[in-house]
């Protein structure tokens, strides 16, 4: 049972977002890059648990990124995983990322591909579904639980106002979110071992982007908060009704 975990790097969650070049580029100056939390805490850790339980024979990690993505993939290897693959290109177009991973994964015959539910930077949440389509695999999105037995996965996924439990035959792509596993911290042995684990750099297939980000914008700054005294909750309710018109 071979598992592939898709890893992307993302700015640390405390990052103050700023743009440069006339609002066309994300300003990475002073920004710490981390493993996208959904990829790390849920997808990767669940894959490692499946290997530790003897269900999976190998766990490979893959990322689409330039050389600056290597510290993050090494950090992921410190948590676990047998080897990593970096596809040497970068794109904000989710199709390019999915198609590049699909081109690599097509020859490797993975039984299970895990990714986070979305990246915390571009928030598309579509890469996993695209990958499943391109590899002609099943897809369960926004999963909170995953177990495997006899080439069939039992997956709980979020639905409107609740959850659904599905039986999905492998091969399968699953996008993971909270509930799937508990976050881990890499230990010293893992960090040392990660230094010598194979990190394969693969040339990109040169897939053309279907979309591009042309510019960015920051949300309007609130003009000032209107305060109410704790004794004046009628005043607040009145403002919510007649001014904000939300109740």
């Amino acid at each position: 049972m071979k598992i592939l975990v898709c890893i992307s790097q993302a700015p640390d969650t405390t990052t103050k977002i700023a743009f440069s070049d006339n609002n066309t580029k994300f300003n990475t100056a002073g920004v710490t890059m981390i493993i996208n939390p959904y990829d790390e805490w849920y997808a990767l850790v669940r894959a490692l648990e499946l290997k530790e339980a003897g269900t999976a024979s190998s766990v490979h990690l893959i990322t689409v990124g330039k050389q600056d993505a290597e510290p993050v993939i090494r950090k992921a290897l410190a948590l676990g995983g047998d080897e990593a693959i970096r596809i040497d290109t970068e794109s904000h177009d989710p199709y390019v990322v999915a198609a590049e991973i699909a081109a690599y994964a097509a020859n490797e015959k993975y039984d299970l591909i895990l990714c986070g539910k979305e990246s915390i930077d571009y928030n598309n949440g579509v890469m996993g579904g695209m990958l499943a389509e391109l590899l002609d695999m099943n897809y369960v999105g926004f999963a909170t639980k995953l177990d495997l037995a006899d080439s069939v996965a039992t997956v709980s996924r979020e639905i409107e106002g609740g959850e659904e439990i599905d039986k999905a035959p492998l091969p399968l792509v699953v996008s993971c979110q909270k509930g799937m596993a508990e976050a881990r911290i890499p230990n010293m042995r893992g960090i040392m071992a990660a230094r010598t684990k194979p990190l394969k750099v693969v040339a990109a297939s040169g897939i053309a982007a279907l979309s591009e980000i042309v510019s960015y914008d920051l949300p309007p700054v609130k003009t000032g908060v209107k305060m109410f005294a704790p004794e004046d909750m009628d005043g607040l309710v009145n403002a919510l009704h007649s001014e904000a018109k939300v109740i």
């Binding site: 177009d93 598309n124 949440g125 579509v126 499943a132 389509e133 409107e160």
Partner: peptide, 24 residues
């Protein structure tokens, strides 16, 4: 819609038709 159904279906459709997507 950018909800659990839309986010499951739209990416498959986008990849199938090679149609670019704006998600959300």
């Amino acid at each position: 819609l950018h909800d659990v159904t839309g986010k499951a279906v739209a990416p498959r459709l986008s990849a199938r038709l090679k149609a670019g997507i704006v998600a959300g």
